[in-house]
Write a protein that binds this DNA or RNA. Structure first.
Lengths: 196, 196
DNA sequence: ACCTGAACACCGTTCAAGT
DNA sequence: ACCTGAACACCGTTCAAGT
């Protein structure tokens, strides 16, 4: 994209960009740490920015979540592409799903927002992330199903539902990692083809 | 318990009891219908009662949820006892878990509150319900495990986690019954013993 | 073009004042 | 003993006013 903006408002734009970064950084710290339930007003305050500025950059909470997770989501999806050439299709799928659970559980409210992005007809903030995850998971799923070891009556939305549900469990009690692993193993067993 | 209260405050007590019933009834309608996200103030208003009265009867949202669900929970748990003498232990467990999912998904916020009741050390409102469900599920689980068809590395808390997660999915999108059924069948497959 | 922060309509919760 | 509702401290969100 060519830069057509006049030179004289460069400093303003760069200042705005810095504000954006500050908000993202403050939001990351606020939504990731131990006290994850931080208000948007508080995030703006910590970012040293007016609340109006936060809403100017991110019209709603989902837009902020999208910005926060965009980078991690895309690295996760490129990782999926790399896994597509591994020689263990089922292990690749399962391993990636586990990573996805951890990723989605990183920010409070992300499981619900991601699910909503899948259901929602319109363009809610996380629609882009959802599509990226959908594509990555789809490729891994199809390849795993071709081995015959994974149920064929599974589609990507169902898979994302399952991941979202487990991520929500992790969100409810971030301490209970071992229980989540247990639950996840039950779920993975369910994905595998049952003996007829 | 013997009734020791003087006769002259009987009408007051009965009036209080009627208020309690009104609140429960209004809350049921408000939290069950299509617009499930009704505020406590609004519920009090619909019940024709001051907001202070609502908080006097139910100190927090979980206490209200407990009162709302107490009856349905106990009938579900007596149903579990009846299922204990059926001749299909696995089908009994699975069928009951499905009913539990529907029950937990009935009221908005119940999945999260129930999970918290399991984790919480103290006495949050739904601790009683959790114990009842724990006992009922435990009996069904043990019997199903004795057949050898159900994984032995499963305990009741893990089971309730799974139910809560699926109920949360249903809560997020009450329309998607067919998808939930699908997810539930995957989960149930995961509960069954995998071929060694 | 971008930022600010007072202001709005809400939320759950409390508590002095009533009967 | 029980009820009331104004009041409090919050929340997300908007928007007139500034630079």
């Amino acid at each position: 994209m060519v830069d057509l903006v006049p030179v004289h408002d460069r400093p303003l734009r760069s200042h705005a960009r810095r504000n954006r970064e500050r908000i993202i950084s403050a939001a990351h710290d606020a939504l990731t740490g131990t006290s994850r339930d931080t208000s948007l007003n508080e995030i703006a305050r910590r970012a040293g920015v007016g609340i109006g500025t936060l809403f100017r950059h991110f019209p709603n909470r989902d837009a902020l979540l999208e910005a926060l997770t965009a980078e991690a989501t895309s690295t996760l999806c490129t990782a999926a592409k790399r896994l597509l050439v591994s020689d263990e299709p089922v292990a690749a799928l399962v391993g990636w799903l586990r990573e996805l659970v951890d990723h989605v559980a990183t920010y409070r409210g992300l499981p619900a927002s991601l699910l909503l992005a899948g259901t929602g007809d319109g363009e809610c903030g996380l629609a882009g992330s959802y599509r990226a995850i959908d594509a990555a998971a789809g490729a891994l799923l199809v390849r795993a199903q071709r081995t015959g070891q994974v149920r064929h009556d599974l589609d990507v939305p169902a898979l994302i539902c399952l991941v979202g549900a487990v991520a929500w469990l992790l969100e409810q009690d971030p301490e209970s990692t071992e229980r989540i692993d247990h639950v996840m193993s039950v779920l993975v067993d369910g994905l595998l083809t049952a003996p007829r």
